[in-house]
Simulated scan of single mutants.
Amino acid sequence: MAERRFSVAGLPGFATIALGVFVCLYLPIVTLVVYSFNGGPSIAVWQGFSLHWYTEAWGNRAVQDATLRSLIVAAWASAIATTLATMAALGTTRRAAFRGQTFIYVMINQPLMVPEIVTAVALLIFFASIKVATGYQGLGYLVAAHSAFCIPFAYLPIRARLEGMDMTLETAAADLYATPWQTFRHVTLPLLAPGIAAGAMLAFVISLDDVIITEFVKSGGQDTLPTYMLGQLRRAVTPEVNAISTALLALTVLLLTAFFLLTRKRN
């Protein structure tokens, strides 16, 4: 008699629970997207299909400024975080095991383990002293804060890519008298490029969507798109917020889809 293998999917009620979880996760998002096309000012009463609120959001000067600011901060933060994460990944994978390696992994991934509100308060106190000493109030603080927070998100796919790479080509390049820089430029970097791109996109999405750290670190008049939306929710909620959320959701899904395509395993 053949032995039956245990399967979680075969347990009673598994399908019902799974369906309920998906409904709880995605029904609010679907509702938000649907009501972003509502013709009236209500976010709860359907008054006909319209693109009015997308037009309103597109022509809103405050939304334009917040969006541009978000893109600038996210672009700089992802570039800096990806560069540092690449160097960290190379330094922790392209060498023999050493004492303190686990501690270094923990320190690099620390922002993932510490509650974000704790990191935000710490950055607020740290940057406040710098603002008082220098008088500088620019976007540099947001870029620095987002860069530090995004490093582990960029580091994980880059490190995973390095660990999955065969070192045969790098060894062959060294045997053919290539210098370490030539080996890195012509062999390691091209092979590592998908991991770097995936890490950059993930860091970009994390920075673009961040609210807590941005809310604590930003100065007056430096709202990003998420903090602008938070401010609007404190006043009067209109389908314009739904339209902005839908556009942000579409951009996030697009980037995460590209991240998945770059990191999936190929036969």
Results as ranks from 00 to 15, higher is better:
V8I: 10
P12L: 13
P12K: 11
G13W: 07
I17A: 14
L19W: 12
V23I: 13
C24Y: 15
I29M: 00
I29Y: 00
V30F: 10
T31G: 02
T31P: 00
L32G: 00
V34Y: 08
S36N: 07
A44M: 12
A44S: 13
F49K: 01
F49H: 01
F49N: 02
S50W: 01
S50V: 00
T55I: 11
E56M: 11
Q64Y: 06
D65H: 09
D65G: 06
R69L: 14
R69H: 13
L71T: 09
A75G: 09
A77L: 07
A79H: 07
T83I: 15
G91I: 04
R94A: 12
G100F: 06
M107K: 08
Q110T: 15
M113Y: 10
P115A: 07
V118C: 08
L124I: 08
F127N: 01
A133V: 00
A133D: 11
G135T: 03
Y136M: 04
Y136W: 15
G138A: 11
G138M: 10
G140C: 14
G140H: 14
Y141V: 05
V143E: 01
V143M: 10
P152T: 04
R159E: 08
L169F: 14
A172L: 10
A172V: 14
A172G: 06
A173I: 12
A174L: 08
A174Q: 13
L176F: 11
A178K: 07
A178H: 11
P180V: 12
R185W: 05
R185Q: 06
H186D: 03
V187F: 08
L189K: 09
L189P: 09
L189Q: 10
A193I: 04
A193E: 03
A198M: 06
G199C: 04
A200I: 13
M201Q: 01
M201N: 02
F204K: 01
I206V: 14
S207M: 09
V211Q: 10
I212F: 10
T214E: 09
T214H: 09
T214Y: 11
E215V: 11
V217Q: 02
G220V: 15
G220W: 13
Q222E: 12
P226K: 02
L230G: 03
G231Y: 05
Q232G: 07
R234F: 07
R235S: 12
A243H: 00
S245C: 12
S245D: 08
A247M: 15
L255N: 06
L262S: 07
L262E: 06
T263A: 01
